[in-house]
Structure formats: structure tokens, C-alpha cells
Design a protein around this nucleic acid. Sequence first.
DNA 1: ACTAATATATTG
DNA 2: CAATATATTAGT
Length: 573
Amino acid sequence: MENMGELSDQRMGGGGGDEQQPGGGDASGVPTCDPVEAVHSVDSVGSGVEPPELLPAHEIASEIAATRHESGDETEEVVEEDCDEVTVTDSGAMIDAADFRGVLSEPTYQTLNGRMTPPGFAPSSSYATLTPLQPLPPISTVSDKFSHHYGHHGNGGFALMQNAAGLGMANINYHSQYDKLGTAMVAAGMNMNVSPTLGVTSAHHVSNAVAMMSTANGMSSQANVLPSPPYPSNGLNSPDKSLSPNNGYDYTHHQRGLGSPQSPSSVNLHSPTSLMPALNGLPSTPPSAHLPPSPPPQVTCTGSHLTLSGVSAVITASAPHHNNHSQPQQVTAAHTHEVKVATTLTAAPQPVTVLQAVTPTPAAIAPTAQTVTIVQAAAAANLATTIVSTPVAVVTTANNALHQQQQQQQQQQQQAQQMNANLSSAGHQKQTGGQSSKNSNISQPASASSSADEVEEINTKELAQRISAELKRYSIPQAIFAQRVLCRSQGTLSDLLRNPKPWSKLKSGRETFRRMYKWLEEPEFQRMSALRLAGESYAIREICSPPTPQAQPAEAFVLRSFLDSCFLFAKAL
DNA sequence: ACTAATATATTG
DNA sequence: CAATATATTAGT
């Protein structure tokens, strides 16, 4: 509730008081970014408040991821792109912030403002900042935004997380939240956690991190293996859109050159094995307990090498490809990675399960036994960049339950993806074929090829319905979605959802729909991050108290992961 | 195509 | 009934 209010407030403030946004308002200058940033800052403040339990999984995950990634990234990211970056951090912040606001608010806030937000914003009304709606940026821009948020680089990570840190510890959150604030702030807080990485990482790596998380949770395992788009993958990375040929937008293009560098590096992971162990350890049982005298199974990624409890898997990085070609190649690369890994794993003394392959055999489950899930994130990179998927290996103890959950989740995701596919009528065939799934991902370049860009047409009517359903499902207010994701007003969104014009009749309005479409494609994590706060908070709530029956599955999943991560963090600390 | 404002619905 | 969310509408 609170959150809602805040959000609304933001809106209100923004709308009504254009004044607030000094520059922003017109801001013509930087249409897209501003609003977001402002929002973020605000939110961030609030985050600390929530009870640890509730804390959004996203955040946690993010944090974790962040931690893993290295700190370095964060800083850069933050600075780099205003809008995007900001958003990212914010996302987490947003959520909490709202809640917190009441409590903490002010102090942090200010700080935040100082950093991220333009001085112009008056701290006074925290929310006001949020509101500023700006003209839609060209999709491209948007895409950037997303990409940044989510996962910049090829990977498509999300931005989310920073806040995540908060999860586990409220305290931390505060600091972190504010990405904006200062990274410094964050860093300080975060450091606590584990590794510097935590601090602020931004989304970049996140994707990987996310993957990690998921794995930890148990989610991912399957995903990896199958080409089918698992959650994480779905996002961007995946071989480009095999799944979502439609959009294409961002993914590919921007890609940011950045991606390349990161990707590989990212792969390295978060080096910090330190965390790993934590992750590995199940929340339930402290790692220490489980671990046998023998060297605890850790996964270390160095560069391209993964070391699993003693066993090293070498991952070959895909060679950078040109944009167009990239897909196919990437795919290939992915396979190779998988294969190798698998092999290695097999060899490994300990029972290792890869992907779905994992069968929860008792042995595997056994404390000693460790299951390794490898997640591949394929990132599309443009330019020469590569994508690389970075396979991440996470060691987790597997529980049957977890597996099931994962599966369910995956299924859901897949369904969702299919749904999305349907939305686009594009000439492409889209992959509706769906099933193809497995291989499909990889394959399909053709359709996508054209791609990316422009993309196909979008079945606006259906898209509108889907969006409406999702908003409802997560209890995301139109105002928030409109603002955060679409950069439009609530009224506009309402109108678009209720009376979507046929794609053919849309002019500039197409961008708005594209954004929606894109959002739908994103994995939940990303979606949430996009919504930032809003999204997360909602999700969380729901999860906690399942409002909607269906909602839960996905949500639950998320929560679990979050919770798990929280535990892990706590332990680590 | 949108926003802002406002009316109307929901929800607690 | 208050707080919010959503639908409408007038005005750019």
C-alpha cells in the first residue's frame, strides 16, 4: 500500500507540479532519462525499511550478483549513462524507498539527490522527482535504457539489483539504495557484504549475476541446457531473440559495445569465490556444516575457466562476431560451452548435474554431492563484441523441491515467451513454433535476422491485453508502469490499453507499444527492475500474500530466490 | 499522441 | 469513508 501511495504521489507530484522538475519538465534535453533517475533516487531512500523477509528477491539477487561482479563495474556504470544507470540502481531503491520513505526518507534522500539527481530537484518532495514524464525517447533510446537497466551488455543483465543488498540487511539497503547517491554510499554499505562487488554493481553484469542467483535457487538449471528460453536467458541474451524476434530492439543493437568487455570479464565472475560458498550453502544449512572436509566445492571462474571443485572446465569464449552473423555463431558457441562444461562436470568426482540433466538423485542431493548448474547467458553483442555467454557455474545443493519449482517457473516463463511471440504478428514467423524450443533458440537466426530492428508488427490488441494482465497480476498500477516503462502518463496508458489502435494506424505511438512488448519479453527480474521500485515492491507483496493465484508461481519463485539469497548473505556476513 | 485534470471505480 | 487506481476528457 504504502508503496503505491508513494508511487502515486510521485506521479501526482510530477504531473501536477511540473514545477518540480525544473529542468526536467521541459527537459527536453533529456527526455528519457531524467524521469527515471529522479524516481530512482527517491525510491532508493525508502528501501531500507522493508522487513527483511519481504525484501524483494530481486534486490537480493541483484546484490548478490553485484557482489560477485566486481565493484569496478559499478562505478563505471553508474557514471556512464545517466539515465540508464541511474535507473538501475534506482530500481531497487524505488521499491524500498517508497516504503521507507515514511521512515527514513529525508536524509537519505537528500544525499541521493546530491548525487544522481540534478541539483535542481528539490529534496523536499521526494517523489516529485519521479513524475516527470518526458517525451518518449526514440525506441533506440529506450532500448538503451532497458539494456542498461537490465543488462547492458550483451548479457542483458538487469540493473536491478543494487538494492538487493538491502534485502538481507536493512541497513545496507539504505546505503545501497541510493545508487544514486553515491556509489560511495552504497559501497560503504555494501562492502559490508561481502565483496566490494556488492556495492553498487550495476546491472551490467547483473545478468550474469542473476543467472547465478537463479541457479542458486535452483531455477536455472534447466534453462541452461535447453535452448529454450529460461528465464534468465530470455531476456536478452539469448541468442538474440530467437525467441523474441520481434523486438529486437535493444538487445542487439546497443549492445553496447560495452558488452563485450564486460561479458567476458563478467564471466569471470564475481570472482569472489567467497560468495560462492555462501551461495552454495543452502540457507537451511550452513555451508560449513555441509561441506565435507574435502575442499568445499566452490566454483571459481577465472576468465574463461571454471573450476568446479577441483575440476576445471574451460569455457571457450565465442569469438566476436559481426552483428548479423552473430546469432548463429553465438549459438554455436553456446553449445560448445555447454558441452565442454558438461564434460568436465561429468568427469568431476563429485556428482555434478548440469542443467536439467540434473536428476535429483539422492546422491546429488546429499550434502556432499553438489549439483552444479551452469547457466549460459548468451549475450548478443554487436559490433565485434561478442557475446558471450558467460557460463556461470553455481554450486548449489539441490533439493527436489527446488527442482520442481524451477521447472515450474521455467515452464511459466516459456509460456510467457510463447505468448509474446504470438503478440507479434510480424512477418517473421516468430518462433511460435515454440516447441522448437530446444534447438530453436539457436537456430533461427533467419527470422530474427532482419530483425532486429524494426521489427515486426505488434498485435496491439493482444499486447494491450497481455500488459493489462501482467499489471494486474503484479498489482502494478498503470501510473507506474506508464511512467517507468513507457514514460507516459497514466491516462495515456489506460487509453492505449483499453483502446489500442491497430499497428498499422499507429504512428509515433508504436514506440510505446514496442516498449510494452519489450517489457513483456523481459524476464521478471528485468521487468521488475524496469519498474523499479514499483515493480518490485508489488511483486514482493504479492508474493508474500498471494493476491492472485497465478501470480504466485512466478513470484513465489522470485521470492524464494530472494529469500535464499538473503540467507546466504546473512551467512556470509 | 499526449498530458493534466477530473470523474469514477475499487479496495481497505 | 479515505486512499488508490483506472477511465474519461479537454486542451496542446
